[in-house]
Amino acid sequence: MAQLEANEEKLRHDLEAVHRLLRLLPQSIYVFDVHQRSNIYANGDLGLLLGYSPDEIRQMGSGLLTTLMHPDDLTLFEGHASQYPTLADGQLLCTDYRLRRPGGTYHWIRGQEQVFSRTGDGAVATILGIAHDLTEERRAEAERAVLREQVIAAQSATLREIGTPLIPIADGVVAMPLVGAIDEERADRILDVLLNGITHRGARLALLDVTGAKDVDARVAAILLRVTRAASLLGAQVVLTGIQPVTARLLVETGADLGQITTRATLQEGITFALKLSPR
């Protein structure tokens, strides 16, 4: 008899320890009766975790979730619950939804559920679920996404700067070596950098070197003409350097008019030409 009482006391002590452990967990753990559509166990009321008083929770009754849930998530949640009868043992059912706090703000909750027990004929009887607040995780994720966008934007800006460097050669002379393909977006960037550089440095001559540029054709020639005309409006002369023989032949065959642009075979020759014109 004494041994039986000792065993019962140990069992009560163990059960109290388990209940205390469950109450201290930050997650809401519950057992949901599929047929009665209500919880038969919960370590803590989700409403209390959200900041509602016991009276407010009692008034909402079994409709607590649907009362507090964001309208856009109701259909999703109902579809989620409809999967209970078909769940296999060990299959995890996850869903994220929003619940309203007393102040009107919404917190993201993630529910993870699986079969806890079945009836004698194998039908799902109860569901074991764990719900935890995802709000801070979502906020941190959103902040990381914004930071990633800012980093990408900064990297893109840096690449654009690298792709259109403006180098001062001498007093009143600047050079811009162009490398890679020149599309319309980059053409606009070239124009902006060059015109701002001419204005800022008071340049009278600008060297555009296309030695490293790809696919310099009539379209690119038209872009260079546009740059030349814009520079001339600011009182600067453009000298184009680095046109390769194949490119020169292509430009002649396509009828591109480069008459408005002074050309030199290499950037070095262009610099020599510019220095002769530049005052000592």
Rank of each mutant, 00 (worst) to 15 (best):
residue 110 R to Q: 12
residue 49 L to P: 07
residue 247 T to K: 11
residue 11 L to Y: 13
residue 223 I to C: 08
residue 48 L to N: 11
residue 105 T to Q: 13
residue 208 L to G: 02
residue 116 F to L: 04
residue 96 D to Y: 10
residue 148 R to H: 01
residue 262 T to H: 09
residue 138 R to K: 13
residue 60 M to T: 09
residue 237 Q to A: 02
residue 252 V to L: 09
residue 138 R to M: 08
residue 131 A to L: 15
residue 21 L to V: 10
residue 232 S to G: 14
residue 41 Y to M: 10
residue 86 T to N: 12
residue 191 L to H: 07
residue 150 Q to E: 07
residue 12 R to A: 09
residue 135 T to W: 04
residue 250 L to A: 13
residue 23 R to C: 09
residue 241 T to R: 01
residue 31 V to F: 05
residue 232 S to E: 10
residue 136 E to C: 08
residue 277 L to Q: 14
residue 29 I to M: 10
residue 31 V to L: 07
residue 249 R to L: 12
residue 234 L to Q: 03
residue 97 Y to K: 08
residue 157 A to G: 09
residue 231 A to S: 01
residue 253 E to M: 10
residue 9 E to L: 10
residue 81 A to S: 14
residue 186 R to Y: 06
residue 234 L to C: 05
residue 28 S to M: 12
residue 245 P to Y: 02
residue 223 I to W: 06
residue 131 A to C: 14
residue 252 V to R: 01
residue 174 V to N: 01
residue 16 E to W: 13
residue 61 G to R: 09
residue 244 Q to A: 14
residue 139 R to I: 07
residue 99 L to E: 02
residue 58 R to M: 07
residue 159 L to M: 14
residue 242 G to W: 00
residue 244 Q to L: 13
residue 235 G to Q: 05
residue 153 A to Q: 11
residue 16 E to K: 13
residue 76 L to M: 11
residue 155 Q to D: 08
residue 247 T to N: 12
residue 250 L to Y: 09
residue 93 L to G: 07
residue 56 E to M: 00
residue 28 S to H: 13
residue 119 T to Y: 04
residue 106 Y to Q: 04
residue 23 R to H: 12
residue 259 G to S: 07
residue 150 Q to W: 00
residue 152 I to G: 00
residue 219 R to Y: 06
residue 94 C to G: 12
residue 82 S to E: 14
residue 166 L to G: 04
residue 78 E to D: 11
residue 109 I to H: 03
residue 178 L to N: 06
residue 88 A to T: 12
residue 15 L to Y: 15
residue 4 L to A: 11
residue 265 A to M: 10
residue 89 D to I: 06
residue 206 A to N: 02
residue 179 V to G: 05
residue 167 I to K: 09
residue 238 V to R: 00
residue 10 K to I: 07
residue 183 D to T: 08
residue 128 L to C: 13
residue 97 Y to T: 06
residue 14 D to R: 14
residue 57 I to R: 03
residue 143 E to L: 03
residue 214 K to R: 15
residue 140 A to V: 00
residue 226 R to P: 02
residue 82 S to W: 09
residue 42 A to N: 13
residue 279 P to Q: 10
residue 253 E to Q: 12
residue 34 V to G: 02
residue 184 E to Y: 08
residue 191 L to T: 08
residue 236 A to D: 01
residue 109 I to N: 02
residue 238 V to E: 02
residue 121 D to Q: 07
residue 130 I to N: 08
residue 79 G to C: 11
residue 158 T to D: 11
residue 235 G to W: 02
residue 136 E to D: 11
residue 100 R to I: 00
residue 1 M to E: 11
residue 257 D to I: 00
residue 106 Y to E: 03
residue 138 R to I: 06
